[in-house]
């Protein structure tokens, strides 16, 4: 074990906290993690906050306000290795659905005094504002993948985070293809692996929680979905989930909305 433990900080932007809680959810390995790193700044876990700079910064959430932009730029300066976690931080999250609408209209409807609301037009991934060293996908992230990235950083090796399709995970575990055998609409062929192909193992199609895979071909999949009986609106809604604003999914949903 290194004499000086790396300092880890966890930061939150627009998000539900689910991803950063994956770290606390590490159960059996939590004590080992706490032993291997110094949890220097993690308000969800400890009141003790140690000042930066930090060796590893975990960032959850999307950038939605002018203040967020200033804050993420400061965080970037403080973190040697910046890891974004979850669909919000890597694609803008479910809240990016507002990117298709006029956010001012929403603030007028929702808030009694909308003049106090300072927000950006769009909910964007962290990577649109600062350089990110590694993006960990998922809604939520897979805690085993989070440990793998932390582990790889500690041991100075490349993390093993495959970027191929969810289909490969189904096949590795022996799950029967729900799209082929049950005609269930499924985003697995265009979605990045990482969840362990959870939904198809429960007879559900993939919701695309881990965002587009490395070489996605959504138009080809959509053609099949339409052949299975999905109408244009169904197809739009399928791609407009937690990773709606990820480029490949955004383009495909837009193509079916025209």
């Amino acid at each position: 074990m290194p004499a000086k433990r790396p300092k880890v900080a966890v930061f939150k932007f627009a998000s539900c906290d689910g991803c950063q809680l994956s770290l606390l959810d590490a159960e059996d390995q939590l004590l080992a993690v706490a032993g291997a790193v110094e949890i220097a700044n993690f308000p969800e876990a400890s009141r003790r906050i140690v000042k930066g700079p930090y060796d590893i910064g975990l960032v959850e959430g999307s950038i939605t306000t002018p203040h967020d932009v200033e804050r993420i730029r400061e965080i970037r300066k403080e973190c040697r290795f910046l890891l974004t976690i979850g669909a919000c931080a890597t694609a803008g999250g479910i809240q990016a659905l507002r990117n298709w609408k006029d956010v001012k209209e929403y603030t007028r409807l929702v808030y009694a005094s909308p003049e106090y609301i300072s927000t950006l037009d769009r909910s964007m991934p962290v990577g649109s504002y600062v350089h990110v060293d590694f993006e960990l996908r998922g809604c939520p992230i897979n805690k085993a993948q989070l440990l793998e990235v932390v582990n790889a950083a500690l041991n100075k090796r490349k993390p093993t985070i495959p970027t191929h399709s969810v289909c490969m995970e189904c096949k590795l575990r022996g799950t029967v293809c729900v799209l082929v055998a049950k005609q269930i609409p499924c985003l697995g062929p265009v979605t990045q692996a990482g969840c362990g192909a959870l939904c198809p193992s429960y007879d559900r199609g993939c919701y695309g929680c881990f965002g587009p895979m490395e070489n996605p071909n959504p138009p080809a999949l959509s053609k099949r979905l339409v052949a299975l009986g999905c109408d244009r609106r169904d197809v739009v809604l399928m791609y407009r989930g937690f990773n709606a604003y990820a480029e490949a999914f955004r383009k495909e949903s837009d193509a079916h909305e025209k």
């Binding site: 289909c167 096949k171 895979m213 071909n217 080809a220």
Partner: peptide, 13 residues
Amino acid sequence: AKRCLACANCTMV
């Protein structure tokens, strides 16, 4: 290439 999903199912099965 326009039709292929590059999902790798063919090679897995």
